[in-house]
């Protein structure tokens, strides 16, 4: 063992394989993020419904898929669902029969459960008075949701969303247990071939770190763009025609 724990040659040789692994990790992040979010909306509406028959199942969903460790969820989907005869013979076996499908299902359900709570918290953070003002303007409930509640909820919940996405990315590292060769699995297999305990894992760590921080930066930029209303005036878009006349006083306030 030399002073530097990293074998640079090995690292260089492993890069292509690790990069392939990273792509799998990226894919296993992106798809469940989309599916999970899509699931989270209806479940969140049910959860917030005053009707007990809707709220209770949604709550049970959240408690179970949020409270169960991801690894157990993955085992449950991968090993457990195969037990169900109807599923095994049904058309969905394309999904549940493959490790990839199982991983996506387990990750999506887990993400959905977390997102229900993120969404709910963000929607509840929207000041009631603003919703009321929209109602008083005669805006329909659907439009209030689309144009007032959701845009504001996004601003209030962005930090929580970022945290969830980041911890979700890190959570995907377990998929190797169902034989998927993601970034972690690639690092592990290089270790098994070379018995170098540092090089592959530290390289994988660098990839994870870069991916996670790319997401963080993305969220920061997004957040800054969303909260531009707190920071400065809207960029001076050329206002249509006659509107310009009233803007003579603008020059003073524009930095």
């Amino acid at each position: 063992m030399n002073a530097l724990p990293i074998d640079l040659d090995l690292a260089w040789e492993s890069l292509p394989a690790l990069f392939d692994g990273l792509m799998v990790t990226v894919f296993l992040t992106a798809l469940p993020l989309i599916i999970g979010l899509a699931l989270a909306f209806p479940i969140c509406f049910a959860r917030m419904s005053p009707r007990r028959a809707l709220a209770l199942p949604a709550e049970i969903f959240v408690v179970f898929f949020r409270g169960a460790p991801l690894l157990i969820l993955l085992y449950l989907v991968y090993y457990g669902l195969g037990q169900i005869e109807a599923l095994r013979n049904g058309p969905f076996w394309i999904v549940f029969g493959s490790p990839f499908g199982c991983a996506i299902v387990a990750l999506s359900l887990n993400h959905a459960a977390y997102m229900v709570e993120v969404l709910r918290g963000s929607l509840l953070a929207v000041p009631h008075g603003i919703v009321e003002a929209s109602e008083a303007l005669g805006i329909t409930r659907r439009n209030i949701f689309l144009w007032v509640r959701m845009p504001l909820a996004l601003r209030y919940g962005l930090k929580a969303y970022q945290n969830e996405v980041v911890s979700f990315v890190k959570g995907t590292a377990i998929v190797s247990v169902v034989t998927i060769t993601d970034l972690m699995a690639v690092a592990n297999s290089i270790f098994e071939q070379t018995y170098d305990p540092f090089t592959p894992i530290l390289c994988a760590a660098a990839f994870y770190w870069a991916f996670v921080n790319l997401i963080r930066v993305g969220f920061t930029v997004w957040g800054r763009w969303l909260s531009r209303h707190n920071a400065e005036d809207a960029p001076l878009a050329i206002p249509a025609g006659q509107a310009l006349q009233g803007l003579a006083g603008r020059a003073k306030v524009t930095p």
Binding site: V166, M184, I201, W209, V212
Partner: peptide, 26 residues
């Protein structure tokens, strides 16, 4: 903070499990 909040716990577990002896030796 950036390192340990930026990598999966599983990776750290493997790192210490596989490489812990070597680290202690160092």
């Amino acid at each position: 903070a950036s390192i340990f909040m930026g990598v999966p716990s599983l990776l750290v577990i493997f790192l210490i499990f596989y490489g812990g002896s070597a680290m202690l030796a160092a």
